[in-house]
Design a protein around this nucleic acid. Structure first.
Lengths: 344, 344
DNA sequence: GATTAGCACTCATGGGAATGGAGTGCTAAA
DNA sequence: TTTAGCACTCCATTCCCATGAGTGCTAATC
C-alpha cells in the first residue's frame, strides 16, 4: 500500500477542496467530481488508506476527512501550482510606494500592509540586514545641550533613533566637523570594523571627552543589530477571521503570540535563505500556531539576500496564491531598496 | 421626583458594584450592603425612579439594573474618587524610560506600552505638537546619489523619516554646508514662518537646483504635521478581554476601528486641553464604541500643553484608578520630554 | 482482483420542552 | 414611608430527540 498515482490525485483533490471550502471533505463530493470515474465506495477505501498513511485525519467518526500537516507538506512540495494574480492585485502591488520616495521604515510598513491586504492574512517583513554592512554616512544632530541624535546610514539602510549624551562643550559646529571626519575617513568601511578602528585612531584626539567616544561606538555597533531585530507587522486582526479561532480565548492567545516581535523575528529567520519556504502547522514548533502556516520569501538588494518577508495564515491557506504574491512582493521590495540604496 | 441624596447614594453604589462585578445589579445585593438600612423593596422603588430618570437600564425584565451613560457621566463628574496606586504600579511607572536616553518615538511607544500594561486597556499617546514649534536644527543626510534624508529638530521633538530627491551634483559637502547655513540662519524661527523665509531668501541662490528648494520646504512644513498625526498605540488586544466583545464579529470591528489611527487621533484631539477628560459611550459618537469610554490626559513640555494621552476601555472601567494612572503618566512623560528638549 | 451497491452504525448539530432561579412590580399591611 | 409577600417574567441551562452527513463493512458484480 503505497502512494500510487490514484491516491495522489485523490489527496490533491481533497487538499484543493478543503482549502476552498474549509469543511471536512467526504467521499461523495469527490465521486461527483467528473474527473474521477470512481464510486464513493472506492474513494472511501482509498481515503482509509491515506488516513493510515498519515495524510488525512478525521475530526470524528462520521465526518469527512481533513488533510494533515504531512499532506500539506506533500502538497506544497509536489502538487501545488502557483496561481495567476488578478489584474486588481497586480495593480495594487505595482502601485505601492511608486508615488513618493520614503524612508526605510515607511517602505517596510507599506510592504507589510500591502501584503496583508492582498492575502487577507498577517504579514511580517523583516528589516534588511547584512553581515557585510558598510558605512555610508554618519551624522550627529544636535538636540538639547548635551544630547545628540545619531544617524547612521549604511548600504543596507538607515539606522536611526539613537540619542546619546555628548560633552556639553561640544557645539553644533564641532559635531558637524566630527560627522564629516568620520563619514569621510570610514566611508565604505565594514560596520563590524568601524568601531575598532575608531577607538584606535580617534582615541587620542577624543581622550578628553570622557565616555563620548565609547558611547558613540556602542551606538553605531548596536544600531544595525537593533534594526535587524525589527520587523514590520500588518494585518494581525485578520487572524480573527479564521474560523478555527472563533473561540475568543484562542484568538487572544494567538494575537498575543503574533505581537511578540522577537519570536516572530526568529520564525522569519529560521526560514533560511530560500527563495520561498514553507513551515506548516507543527513544523512551526509552537502549539498556538499548530493550525497556522508561515510562507516566507527572501528579498535582495542587488543580488544579495538581506531579509525575509512572510505571511502567516491558516494551514488551509491557498498556497499557490500566497506564493505568487510573495514572489511578486519580494522582487518589488528588492528593486525599491536597490534603487534607494544602490552603490553609485 | 428628583435626585435626592438617597437616590444618589444608591446610584453610586450601583455604579461601583457594576464596575466591580460586570453583572446587572439587583436590589437584593444592595440591601445586603450594611451601609443601607433599607429593604430590597424600598431600593427597588428608588431604582425604578432612577430608571425613569434615565440613569439606569434594564437588559430585560427580570434582570438587575445597569448604569446608563448618563449615570457614568454623573459618576465621573460628582461621585468618583481617585484611587491610590499600588506600590507595584508606581514601581513600573517610575522605572520606565529611566535607564536610557531614547528617541522621541521610543519614548512615546514605551509610554503607551506602560499605560496599557497597567490599566489592561488600550492606550493611545499622541506625539507632541505645538503651534509655536521653533526650528532647532536641520540636517540633510546624504543617502544614495540623488537622495537625502531630511532630519528636522524642533523644540518639540525630532521629525524625521522624510527622504527627498536632491540634484545629483550636490555632494555630501554641499549638503552639509547647506544644513549649517539653514540651521544657523533660521535657528529658533517659528516653523510656520521658516518655509516662506527660505523661499524668499534662498530662492535666488538655489534657483538652478530645480524643485529642490520647494521639495525641502514642503518636507519641513509637513513634517511636524505628519508627526502630529502620529500616535502610539498599545494593548489593542486587551479589547478582546471585555466580556461585551466575546462576540468575535464585534471584536473584529472594534479592533479595526481602533487601528484607524486617523480617527483615533481625532478622538484624542477632540478631548480638548483639559487636564483630564472623559468621553463616555455614546458621547464618543461612534456606534462601535458605544460600550467604551475614553479617558484622556494632557501632557506638557514645561508649562505648555503639547499632547494628549488616553485609555480606551469599557464604559464600566474603574475610572478612579484610570485617572490616577493617567495623571501620573502624563506628568512623567511631561518631565521626560522637558528634560529631553528643554531650552538651555 | 478491482469496483460498486447496499446497509447498519456513529456522531455532530440544531431545535424544542422542561426546569430553575434571579429579579421585578404591585399590593396590602405595619 | 417602609416593608413583607406574592405572582409574574424572562433568561440560562439542561436534556432529549430527530436529522443527516459520512463512514466501514459485506456481498454482489464486472
Amino acid at each position: 500500500m503505497d502512494l500510487n498515482p490514484r491516491k495522489l490525485r485523490i489527496l490533491r483533490a481533497i487538499v484543493d477542496e478543503y482549502i476552498l471550502s474549509g469543511a471536512p471533505v467526504g467521499s461523495k463530493v469527490l465521486s461527483q467530481n467528473p474527473s474521477f470515474k470512481l464510486s464513493s465506495a472506492t474513494i472511501r477505501n482509498e481515503m482509509a488508506d491515506l488516513e493510515d498513511l498519515g495524510y488525512l485525519e478525521q475530526p470524528h467518526t462520521s465526518a469527512g476527512r481533513v488533510p494533515s500537516d504531512k499532506a500539506y507538506r506533500l502538497y506544497v512540495n509536489n502538487m501545488m501550482q502557483r496561481s495567476n494574480l488578478t489584474e486588481d492585485e497586480v495593480k495594487v502591488m505595482s502601485a505601492y510606494c511608486q508615488n513618493k520616495v520614503k524612508g526605510l521604515d515607511a517602505v517596510m510598513r507599506e510592504t507589510a500592509s500591502v501584503l496583508s491586504r492582498i492575502t487577507h492574512y498577517t504579514a511580517l517583513v523583516m528589516m534588511p540586514e547584512s553581515t557585510t554592512n558598510r558605512l555610508r554616512h554618519l551624522q550627529l544632530v544636535p538636540l538639547a545641550e548635551g544630547y545628540a541624535l545619531v544617524v547612521v546610514v549604511t548600504d543596507a539602510g538607515v539606522a536611526r533613533d539613537s540619542v546619546i549624551r555628548v560633552p556639553v562643550e561640544m557645539g553644533a559646529d564641532e559635531l558637524g566637523r566630527l560627522s564629516r571626519l568620520i563619514s569621510q575617513r570610514y566611508y565604505n568601511c565594514r560596520m563590524i570594523e568601524v568601531g575598532d578602528r575608531m577607538m584606535k585612531e580617534l582615541g587620542g584626539e577624543l581622550q578628553a571627552r570622557g565616555t563620548f567616544l565609547t558611547d558613540l561606538v556602542d551606538t553605531m555597533e548596536t544600531a544595525p543589530g537593533a534594526n535587524a531585530h525589527r520587523i514590520a507587522l500588518s494585518g494581525t486582526n485578520n487572524m480573527l477571521d479564521f474560523p478555527a479561532y472563533s473561540d475568543i480565548d484562542r484568538a487572544r492567545q494567538l494575537l498575543a503570540a503574533v505581537e511578540k516581535k522577537d519570536s516572530m523575528y526568529q520564525m522569519l529567520k529560521n526560514a533560511g535563505p530560500f527563495e520561498i519556504s514553507f513551515r506548516i502547522g507543527s513544523e512551526l514548533g509552537q502549539d498556538i500556531f499548530s493550525d497556522c502556516s508561515l510562507v516566507t520569501a527572501t528579498y535582495r538588494i542587488g543580488s544579495m539576500p538581506v531579509g525575509t518577508m512572510g505571511v502567516i495564515g491558516p494551514t488551509r491557506m491557498p498556497y499557490g496564491k500566497v506564493v505568487s504574491v510573495l514572489d511578486y512582493m519580494s522582487k518589488s521590495l528588492g528593486s525599491i531598496l536597490t534603487n534607494l540604496l544602490e552603490e553609485d
